[in-house]
Design a protein around this nucleic acid. Structure first.
Length: 759
RNA sequence: GCCGGCGUGGCCCAAUUGGCAGAGGCACCAGGUUUAGGACCUGGGUGUUGUGGGUUCGAGUCCCACCGCCGGCACCA
């Protein structure tokens, strides 16, 4: 392959104007200027990426309304990576739910593009069910579809215009309310169904979205519930192409019939094909969808009427923001408006210093306002004179900035080599830390702990970015984060007033089981701690009152890392008490001096220590910090009893304790370490190793059950054989009393665990 | 509506993965002590493991159905 390609227009490259050339190359760029519908959020004063807009059409941050507007903006061609982003999920050690969320967001859908002819030219539709084409009895276009105007007949023009206007003011929330009745209007024109050659009416309706597929569908009411509802609503023909199984008819309490007039709903599933034949193609009698598709698709492509194709839900990434805080684009425009990238020697482009960098304040509800980036106000920065190779000329700087995600797409790489002035990361350094560990391994950071809320934001963007860097040869790894661990949410009570507004949770007072905010009664709910619910407890408050070690310990101890769990400030004190007990075991509070003993610890305490080491080591490995902490508290409680009975804490116990505690409460552990006389940081000390001899005990208590209920316990030697264990159990008084004269029908002996007699 | 996660003492949570329901923290109770009245010491476990079935000698754990809470997606052709 030479890499040569023809231009989109077919013109020869050297005959094209700079503007035409720029347009041509932009079609291949990963970052390109696009004039397309964007998400305009006046409440934030900026546009947003699709991923930053919630399902009900509001901003992910701040919960402001978002409006669809056409604007010229920088866009990243992430959609080009759809398949790789999807496939490589298989190779990642990530929680299944996150993978699923990314799969859903990418939304790969296999189907076919089918061409219908019409008076206004070809109409392309996307369908996942080309096998049902014989049942396509009408076409539905999105109200925003470019052919709508040309297809509207004179008689229908007025109702079409009215409908379009109405659809444009319908909010996304209303449009997605599936309990809403189907709406739509007839355009007056007809298209030809390519397999039946029959004219079918062309309608417009807002249940067809311009942003997905081609913005046009072939409606098969017998096989699609939405199309079915629409056909019933507007009395359009419904033709069955598959005969449902008898069970389907039974479930709907109707007699089997391929006359859809009696059907209560569309049929989706495998069924024998009917009514699906023309002179050169017959699906009749076929039983599987995939077989029918494999007959239909070649028939269509042989006649240039369609082809198998793949559609994605993932759209390109809207990359401009109208804010001050963000990386400026290294782009300037010449007097013709053409974009030029700033050469490496002139990088980085720095933000100008501003006294006022606040975003413009706009009415959050006014979708007609325009975004004005703060940088546009800095006229002497915007206009600049540069020599880009053809002498000093005046240029206009790009005034949009990059979104916050731009930096989080590669910070993990920069962390590897933060002082390097030649490369963003030295290739050897990247290879060492993040390179693939074996053939087929994706590479990436070994463990990444983060919240689920980044599932289709940061975690998708960073993967895309990393693949671009990989393709360009800058990194050896194919993925940024090989293993992902999702910590749970911290949850807390939140309160709303009668208008549905959240009120600051810390100012709410409880009285007789009801809750009040400034004398107004409010309603309690429960959810993720965060700004939107105004139920945040800031770490700063915790540091002030309890210190960072206590705060850290509490957060780790309150439950499994991956579980969401409620914050409870009054529980925090427990961790502080633990640290204080530990401190008093090491330090004489009256003198402030170290009070540890060089004497060997008694065997009992040593055994407890090594049991603790063994357990904590395993817990740490599995990220079970909550159980690790409980084991350390247990050991410290044992130590407390020893100290309170007139001893000093043995240094042989305190030293490994400090080492184990260092990752959990680093400040206190470091302090103890220094007091023990060490001159280097505890951070670099190894984790203690348990002594197997001190872990093994000589005897063990075994429960003895009669019919599965514990009736006695016997103490036996560790490793006692099956026969001896059974004999020991039968010799127990309580057991013989319980069995009496009966003969056990069955005896279960699990060595080292239990004995069970079934009577 | 669909998908995922979770339901264990008053509360947050453990339970060696099918084997004695209880490790740790909060709260509570009793006693002790004190310069300690939200930070001391000692002792105390308060239960139909969400509900109903099933498998098993044995179920918090596995299977089925349902209920509740949390999160995600939702006219995606």
């Amino acid at each position: 392959m030479s890499g040569e390609r023809s231009t989109a227009s077919g013109d020869a490259w050297n005959t094209m104007t700079p503007a035409q050339k720029s347009l041509e190359t932009d079609a291949y760029r990963l970052a390109y200027l696009s004039d397309a519908p964007v998400n305009w959020c006046p409440g934030l004063g900026t546009i947003l990426a699709n991923e930053e807009v919630t399902a009900d059409g509001r901003s992910d941050i701040g919960n402001y309304p978002v409006f669809r507007r056409n604007m010229r903006q920088w866009t990243m061609r992430i959609s080009l990576f759809s398949d790789r982003l999807l496939e490589d999920l298989e190779r990642l050690d990530w929680p299944e739910p996150i993978k699923l969320m990314q799969r859903n967001w990418i939304g790969r859908s296999e189907g076919a593009r089918v061409t219908f002819s019409s008076s206004a030219g070809a109409i392309n539709v996307f369908t996942t069910r080309p096998d049902t084409l014989f049942g396509a009895t009408f076409i539905v276009l999105s109200p925003e579809h470019p052919l709508v105007e040309a297809l509207s007949t004179t008689e229908q023009h007025e109702s079409v215009t009215t409908y379009i206007a109405q659809a444009s003011t319908t909010t996304d929330t209303d449009r997605q309310d599936d309990s809403r009745a189907k709406t739509g209007v007839f355009t007056g024109s007809f298209a030809v169904n390519p397999v039946t050659n029959q004219p079918i009416p062309i309608w417009i309706a807002d249940y067809v979205l311009m942003g997905y597929g081609t913005g046009a569908i072939m409606a098969v009411p017998s096989g699609d519930q939405r199309d079915f509802e629409f056909a019933r609503q507007f009395h359009l023909p419904i033709v069955a192409t598959q005969m449902p199984a008898d069970a389907w008819f039974d479930a709907h309490h109707i007699a089997p019939s391929n006359d859809c007039a009696t059907w209560p709903s569309a049929f989706v599933g495998e069924g024998t094909y009917v009514n699906s034949a023309n002179d050169s193609l017959s699906l009749n009698g076929q039983r599987s969808i995939s077989d029918a598709k494999s007959l239909m698709n070649p028939w269509l492509s042989d006649r240039n009427l369609g082809e198998a194709t793949v559609t994605y839900r993932l759209r390109d990434w809207l990359f401009s923001r109208q804010r001050y805080w963000g990386e400026p684009f290294p782009i300037v425009y010449d007097e013709d408006g053409l974009a030029h990238d700033i050469p490496e020697s002139m990088l980085p482009v720095l933000l100008p210093e501003l006294a006022d960098f606040s975003p413009q304040s706009l009415d959050p509800m006014d979708g007609t306002s325009d975004p004005v980036p703060p940088l546009a106000r800095v006229t002497d920065w915007v206009t600049t004179t540069l020599d880009l190779g053809d002498g000093p000329r005046t240029y206009r700087r790009e005034v949009n900035v990059m979104p916050q995600w731009a930096g989080s797409c590669w910070y993990e790489l920069r962390y590897l080599d933060p002082t390097n002035t030649q490369f963003f990361v030295d290739p050897e350094v990247e290879k060492y830390w993040m390179g693939p560990s074996s053939a087929g391994h994706t590479g990436g950071v070994d463990l990444y702990v983060g919240g689920v809320e980044h599932a289709v934001l940061h975690l998708l963007y960073a993967r895309f970015w990393h693949k671009v860097l990989h393709d360009l040869g800058h990194v050896s790894s194919e993925e940024p984060f090989h293993r992902l661990f999702n910590q749970g949410y911290i949850q807390a009570y939140a309160y709303r007033d009668d208008r549905g507004q959240t009120v600051p949770a810390e100012e709410v007072k409880e009285q007789d089981g009801s809750f009040f905010y400034a004398d107004e009664k409010v309603h309690r709910e429960y959810g993720k701690m965060g700004k939107s619910l105004k139920n945040i407890v800031t770490p700063d408050e915790m540091y002030d009152e309890y210190g960072a070690d206590t705060f850290r310990l509490y957060e780790m101890a309150m439950g499994p890392l991956e579980a969401s769990r409620p914050w409870n400030t009054r529980d925090v004190v427990g961790m502080q008490r633990f640290l204080q007990r530990l401190w008093r075991n090491v330090i004489d509070e009256d003198t402030g001096l170290l009070a540890v003993s060089q004497d060997a610890a008694p065997e009992m305490l040593l055994r407890q220590l090594h049991k603790c080491i063994s357990g904590v080591a395993a817990d740490m490995e599995a990220l079970r910090f909550n159980t690790a902490i409980s084991k350390l508290i247990e050991l410290n409680n044992d130590l407390t009893q020893f100290v309170n009975s007139g001893h000093h804490a043995p240094v042989g116990v305190i030293t490994p304790m400090a080492q184990m505690l260092s990752p959990l409460c680093p400040h206190l552990a470091e302090e103890i370490w220094a007091l023990l006389g060490h001159s280097t940081s505890i951070t670099f000390e190894p984790f203690p190793v348990a002594d197997p001899h001190l872990l093994a005990s000589e005897t063990i208590e075994i429960p003895v059950q009669i019919n599965g209920k514990v009736r006695s316990r016997i103490v036996v030697a560790v490793g006692m054989s099956r026969d001896d264990l059974l004999a020991a159990a039968m010799a127990d008084d309580k057991v013989t009393a319980a069995i009496g004269s009966a003969t056990p029908t069955k005896t279960i002996v699990v060595v080292g665990k239990l004995v069970n007699f079934v009577l």
